[in-house]
Amino acid sequence: MDILTILIPVSLGLGAAGLLAFIWALRSRQFEDPKGDGERILSDRWDDRPRPD
C-alpha cells in the first residue's frame, strides 16, 4: 500500500494540471466565439506565419 503515497499525489497533480489548463483557457477568452474559432481554421490566411498581435 506504500505505492499510494506516490499514486495519490500524482493523480491529484494530473487533475490539477487539467484544471489549471481549463482556467487558463477561460481567462484567455477561448470560449467567447466557439463557432468563429471552428471556421477560422478553414481560412489559409495565417498558415505560413502566426498572426502578429
Partner: peptide, 13 residues
Amino acid sequence: LMRIGVSGFAMMN
C-alpha cells in the same frame, strides 16, 4: 463555467 470546471475536476478525483 469556472465553477463547472472546478467541480468537474473535484468530481473526477
